[in-house]
Design a protein around this nucleic acid. Structure first.
Lengths: 329, 329
DNA sequence: ACTTAGCACTTGAATAAAAAAAGTGCTAAG
DNA sequence: CTTAGCACTTTTTTTATTCAAGTGCTAAGT
């Protein structure tokens, strides 16, 4: 258990460091609380022994450790209410009644990315939670058509395919068949159902069944198992601790392109705002991910904000709370 | 007019510098052609006076200037045929008969981006060249639906919209009306046609005409005026002259996100492979853009490869030639 | 009229030494 | 328990020194 004064000092250090990434010395702190720098040094030493602070070298000022940030987030941070300007910018997006929910979310996360200089992410629900609701085909010309897949969660995707020497008639039949036989199936099981339930039957009804089967097989294999939307990909370049370290940047960029890694963002089961600091996340030991699930009707997903470990925790949590609230009603 | 020997020297310098970005001295060159380093120095001095070479400081080796690259591309470069490995990788993509053309293009440009470490871009044809061919609506639930827009060039886009208290009936009527009245219109004129030709009539047929009009108005306003696809966004980080210069990187990344800038890539009217070196392009004075138009049936667009000024011109031009050829048949 | 050996000269990069700045830990006194 | 004071560390900055690479020019050679 930390003393009142220790809490105060830790908090000052974290907040100062978040403002500007330079190690914090005892002098500055001593001015802020009412006691000598020597006293502060003693307390800092103790906080370091507890693993909450670190030095960059023997005689440097202190920097929050991962555990220090954790402690700050869990115990010291107080949520201030959103500033009027931030609020206004977001309200402008939320007020737009014509936009579909998913567009409202991406647009507002774009706004957040711009105002915070962090990267933001929306993840739709996973493929096993999306049931095939409807399949539709729109012919484009003799050989090309667009296949549209709609899931029960409102995830829509379209793909263009080529089908040579197949009549529209036949395609329509096939689509109807698929709609009848396997709508309601989780997206990631559609492919196997296609093989075991549609393939054996399709031959009886449709002439060019091989070609058609192959085409649809590919469409569903290619179907994105999860909608992922990244805003402000390059914002990390604005963060001083990254902009001086190309390898870090490369790593973060690569991780962001890697769908598998991004999926790990969604692994949460409960419903609160979660903060994953440094090694607590799968992206990079120098970033923090703050995320939360949302649910509106049967549309659901996760939104996340990715920034440096020294991100503005209070402000970001406030923004996410506001987002969640507004999405859910 | 350069002498034979000057051509030789310039070419050696450019090719050497492309291989490795370190200024080239007279000694290396003198070994490659049969004469003393002093002679080479004289020639280099002349080439510098002509603006084809530059020094990084008074006593450094030479580096090709922008004009130097230009001269190299125009006069010295000889197209070698593609190496077998590159060819194989691309053929694997082109052989896939099921893929729609646009997918073949993006996939193969992904492959190129990976093997060259350059960024690649596909640009579809512009909105004024795309005519609205077909509009279709798929209901998702009571208030949400997906609108699908197909253009005559095979560009397909879908958007989700919200429509409260409007019956599916009404929506279908509106869509039919729009299809009848304005299909065949260039996409960027659709909005005004909606206003002057559809709006006045729609009231007679459809009850909730205001809401519907607004919804479709937005759909078309939001319609991407040009399909843009970027592969290997971060490849610049692999190029030594960029990875040591964050500001350059930021600039290039920002330009790539800027649709207006990208459009300038397409400004060409003729049909050949074009090389825009440094200030000749709008992206950045330190990159080169190599691009070409393609056309297959009524699908057309531009593909471009963006790399450092010292990109492997011959190899890239070879790749683009191959791409173009394969796309067009 | 070219080519080239030779050499003085320039510049950047690498290394070393010295001085300045920031901050710590500890001791001893209040 | 607090704090003034000071020795000590470490980084950063500055200055100087040397080394390596490469140039331009001159004068001699073909």
């Amino acid at each position: 258990m930390l003393s009142e004064r220790q809490n105060k000092i830790l908090r000052l250090i974290v907040e100062r460091y978040i403002k500007e990434p330079i190690p914090v010395g005892s002098k500055v702190i001593s001015k802020a609380i009412n006691c000598s720098s020597a006293t502060v040094r003693n307390e800092m030493g103790e906080l370091e022994r507890l693993g909450l602070l670190e030095k960059t070298h023997t005689s440097s000022g202190r920097v929050p450790s991962e555990a220090g940030y954790r402690y700050y987030v869990d115990n010291l941070m107080e949520l201030k209410k959103m500033n009027a300007e931030d609020m206004l910018k977001l309200q402008r997006v939320f007020k737009n009644q014509q936009l579909a929910l998913s567009d409202v979310i991406t647009k507002s996360l774009e706004v957040i990315s711009d105002m915070m200089n962090y990267t933001t992410v929306v993840l739709g629900s996973k493929s096993h939670e999306n049931l095939l609701k409807h399949l539709e085909v729109i012919p484009i010309d003799d050989t090309n058509m667009t296949v549209i897949i709609v899931t029960d969660k409102g995830h829509v995707e379209h793909k263009n395919i080529r089908l040579e020497d197949v009549s529209l008639e036949e395609v329509k039949k096939t689509v109807a068949l698929i709609n009848n036989l396997i709508s309601g199936t989780p997206i990631d099981e559609v492919v196997s159902k296609l093989e075991y339930e549609v393939k054996p039957i399709i031959g009886n009804y449709v002439k060019q069944h091989e070609k058609l089967y192959n085409a649809f097989y590919h469409v569903f294999t290619d179907f994105t198992n999860q909608e992922v939307n990244i805003m402000g990909r390059h914002k990390m370049l604005e963060q001083p601790e990254f902009s001086s370290n190309i390898d870090k940047i490369k790593n973060v960029f690569n991780k962001l392109e890697d769908k598998e890694i991004l999926k790990s963002i969604e692994e949460d089961d409960d419903n609160n705002i979660k903060v994953y600091i440094g090694n607590e996340n799968n992206i990079d030991s120098d970033v923090t991910v703050i995320q939360t699930k949302y649910k509106n009707g049967n549309e659901e997903g996760t939104i996340a904000i990715i920034g440096p470990k020294r991100m503005e925790y209070d402000r970001v949590v406030g923004l996410l709370e506001y987002m969640k609230e507004n999405i859910e009603r």
